[in-house]
Nucleic acid binder design. Structure first.
Lengths: 208, 208
DNA sequence: CAAAGAAATGAACATAAGTTCATTCTTTTT
DNA sequence: AAAAAGAATGAACTTATGTTCATTTCTTTG
């Protein structure tokens, strides 16, 4: 029994794996998923191209994991706010704000994550991610309807609208170059718009 | 002087060009820009691959033209409504509705056009397209502010929010498979949300 | 009909990126 | 230290597409 993987090696392997994921994330933040090639990743991480395949079965899998890691934390934050204990409308506003603010601050990272062209599997995953956001919003909206602070409405549609509003107003412009365009006022504008959208009834119902 | 391009030939060439564009559009509607390859296009249009390059200098140029043709009509329709003559709020609602409805009906192969992963040049062009929509909305919003039917607000942000809301609520799900998910009620939901967003002031201003 | 110039052709080429695998280097155990 | 097993390597392979160009076919004119 001349060789068995020892603890030390196990740790080193895990460290390399994490290193690869971190490097991949850096590259994606700089150049998007389009700029993430195995060769580039390997060089930057200081390993050979073949080595990458000892840690990830395919590029797709690698991308997925990079993506998930980036997303999980974001979605969790939104849910924390949405689930919170205060009045439903304040919770919704807080959830919107946290998503919008973080997206704005992490400007470069945000675009590839939520919008950049990428492969099929990523596209599917991205939907999951957005839906996670939307679901957090919908959760708060439903609570608000129950509590009577929001009028009756299709919470899923409103939530999707909010997600879309954030992405478009905040992130889509980043595909261009003017990163400096956004200010905290932009987030305020989005929150205001979204909250009004949820809070006020339609013309017909308002008239009724 | 043994050969000069005659009128008949000129027409035939023009016809082939249009045929290529139409076929390309079909392919994009079916399989997205990712599915648009020169080989496939040539085969479907009944010409050789080399022939395509007698009509378009590169695939990028071809894609751009396909894209522009699809977009121009849509943007024009939105502007028609936004520029109309009625009250500003009704114009805005009409513009939103026309964009949302047409997208829903798939009139434009909405998903590939507004959201599908594609090359760099297309991405830039897509921004232009979305901004065109947003600008139409912003136009009506500004008019509404002037007329006093909308409270003071950043028209550009609100307009971007509207565009995003439409895309997310309506089109993004199309990247999945459940096309039949949407009903006219979905459009109503979007319009309601968007109109409330523009129409009602922020909490602080409402309280003031 | 013959000649000359366009137009069409499609096989061949170029490129780029993901993936493989025979080989080499490391680590562990006796 | 030697042997065995694992890990790393990176050049070569594969595949997929965009693009070219020598050749063929068509169209016009004298």
């Amino acid at each position: 029994m001349p060789y068995r993987q020892t603890e030390r090696v196990k740790l080193r392997l895990a460290a390399t794996r994490v290193q690869l994921l971190k490097t991949a994330r850096q590259i994606v933040m700089e150049s998007g998923f389009a700029g993430l090639t195995i060769a580039r990743l390997a060089t930057r991480a200081g390993v050979a191209t073949g080595t990458v395949y000892r840690y990830f079965p395919s590029k797709d899998d690698l991308c997925l994991e990079v993506f998930r890691r980036a997303c999980d934390r974001e979605a969790e934050l939104a849910w924390q706010e949405a689930r919170g204990s205060g009045p439903a409308d304040q919770r919704l506003a807080a959830a919107i704000r946290v998503v919008a603010t973080r997206a704005m601050e992490g400007a470069t990272a945000a675009y590839p994550i939520v919008a950049e062209p990428a492969g099929d599997s990523l596209e599917r995953e991205r939907r999951v991610y957005r839906e996670n956001w939307s679901n957090a919003f919908a959760h708060a909206i439903r609570a608000g309807i129950t509590d009577g602070v929001f009028p009756k409405q299709d919470a899923d549609i409103s939530a999707a609208c909010i997600t879309g509003a954030i992405l478009e107003a905040l992130i889509a412009p980043l595909s261009q170059v003017d990163t400096a365009r956004h200010t905290p006022r932009t987030v305020d504008g989005i929150v205001r718009f979204a909250m009004a959208g949820v809070r006020y009834p339609s013309d017909s119902e308002a008239a009724a």
